[in-house]
Nucleic acid binder design. Structure first.
Lengths: 155, 155
DNA sequence: ATAATATTAGTCAACATTAGTCAAGAACAC
DNA sequence: GTGTTCTTGACTAATGTTGACTAATATTAT
């Protein structure tokens, strides 16, 4: 309690609002000024304390009228399962192995058949083909992880 | 909630009319004056928020009695709907424009909400981020086209 | 008819206003 | 001392706003 750094204090401030509201929308510069820190510190706080694993989804817009919006989402009860698939995907994944991941999701009931087919269309050879096999495997991994993270919560 | 920019406000105004009417016809200078902006801002709003990917067709006429007419088009009436989206995607596509494509698919009934969200997860910034923007836009285009082709034969 | 003028909308580039990234250094925990 | 976390700011990117200039069309004068 005593030795809270400024990031912790900003985190508490935002979570206090989120305790009463489903979401909070801020202007980055305004909050930074309010707590007397540089604007990019707000990004740091969000990146380290409002992740999808914590149950938050963050959206933002630049330019005039820009904002950062943090939304509290309802996490599903398949988190351990998703974690294990994220670990299995890793930094890169072959096409063959990625099929297993999609099949696991389908068999677990996390996605239905047509959702599975869309994911397969997104990661097949037509979709990802840079000419460098390793790059392709990295991109495929990132896409799968992004989708897996999406499947963590109710939307 | 708080600080909407004027472009968003003008967009809302026009879409409110379009919610009750198939089309809206305006005089550029009149709307600009009504919202206290320069006339060219109306062009900006239309160019960024009423594209064909969004499901709108815009016609205009200059000179005396000139107008800008925005018409909401029913995409499903067009049998070449998927073809037109494939053409709109092209060799590369920005994240912003790709959102419009997915929204069009949803509004046309080609995909449901959870399918749309999966596609968005597959093409967002976390998923596709090689460090080279042009490469990212090319990959995003290939993924979208792969999905569009899948949807073509699915339905 | 034709030319001149008036009345609209379109384009484009400069500038303004936001947020994001990244890497260096400081502070902290062990 | 070493490794992690926090803090900072320079640089980048996305989006919005403005106005000078251009283009198209209609109206009026000859």
């Amino acid at each position: 309690m005593e030795n809270q750094n400024i990031s912790d204090i900003i985190e508490s401030y935002l979570k206090q609002i989120l305790a009463e509201s489903q979401q909070v929308e801020i202007r980055r510069a305004e909050i930074a000024s309010q707590f007397n820190v540089v604007p990019s510190q707000i990004n740091y706080v969000i990146k380290t304390r409002f992740t999808i694993q914590d149950g938050y989804v963050v959206q933002s817009k630049r330019g005039g009228g820009g904002y950062i919006r943090i939304e509290k989402v309802k996490l599903l009860d398949n988190l351990d399962f998703i974690d294990s698939l994220v670990a299995a995907v890793g930094d890169q994944i072959s096409r063959h192995d990625s099929l297993s991941v999609v099949r696991s999701l389908f068999e677990a009931g996390a996605i239905n058949r047509s959702e599975a087919n869309i994911i397969l269309a997104a990661i097949n050879k037509d979709a990802i083909n840079t000419g460098d096999r390793q790059v392709d495997e990295q991109i495929r991994a990132q896409i799968l992880i992004s989708i897996l993270n999406h499947l963590r919560y109710e939307s």
